[in-house]
């Protein structure tokens, strides 16, 4: 009974890692369904936020879950399951936008192309911004910057995790976050203080 997800007894109290382990042990699709119920809305809303299109977001959600299903055995529990799931989501959306725009690098503000000194924006300035204003700011900055800010402040990923996801060095990620914050602040001023 303990291993039977059909009864759903206790399964809602189990951690994600426990459910992943049970799924890998039993290959019972009901365990995967529990993970789907927990994350589908979050992934879907992230996809809508990044892709700005509901039907694309629906396809993306399906593809992300297929990727999760195909790679779940590779989840090593070095990070939280949510972090792993969101990484797949961001990478999928970023790749999609990159292909659509035919850009070589969505994070185009590479270190060598950017000015060296960017003023440090305090975290509180972004974290305490009114929600509707933050939404507008995020809609008006490049998708790469938006994604990196969401990873850092919405999903609370560490610098190391973001660096791992985007296959960049930690120092490069720190600089990208700094620049993204700066762009957000500049956009805020342009929209609301002009």
């Amino acid at each position: 009974m303990q291993n039977s997800p059909r009864g759903k007894v206790g399964s809602s109290k189990k951690t994600d890692s426990e459910i992943v382990r049970l799924y890998l042990q039993t290959r019972n699709s009901d365990y995967f369904q529990i993970l789907y119920k927990r994350y589908s809305s979050k992934i879907y809303s992230k996809c809508i936020s990044l892709l700005k299109d509901e039907s694309l977001a629906q396809d993306a959600t399906q593809d992300v879950f297929t990727k999760i299903y195909l790679n779940i055995a590779k989840f090593s529990e070095r990070s939280k399951f949510s972090t792993w799931v969101y990484s797949i989501t961001y990478n999928y959306c970023i790749d999609f936008i990159r292909k659509k725009k035919k850009e070589k690098n969505l994070f185009s503000d590479d270190l060598e192309n950017s000015p060296d000194i960017v003023e440090e924006v305090p975290d509180q300035e972004l974290l305490q911004m009114e929600v509707h204003r933050l939404k507008r700011v995020l809609e008006n900055i490049p998708t790469g910057d938006k994604a990196i800010l969401l990873m850092k402040y919405q999903d609370e990923m560490s610098i190391k995790e973001i660096a791992h996801n985007l296959e960049k060095s930690e120092s490069a990620i720190k600089m990208k976050i700094k620049r993204a914050k700066h762009k957000a602040q500049k956009t805020y001023k342009e929209i609301f203080q002009s």
Partner: peptide, 28 residues
């Protein structure tokens, strides 16, 4: 409450609810 990013996430989740049931059916 302190993190507007989190509040935005909650708002977006409430706004978009969950993906259509076809997606779940397709995945399963």
């Amino acid at each position: 409450e302190e993190n507007s990013f989190k509040r935005l996430q909650e708002e977006q989740e409430n706004q978009h609810a969950s993906p259509p049931p076809e997606i779940e059916n397709n995945i399963m």
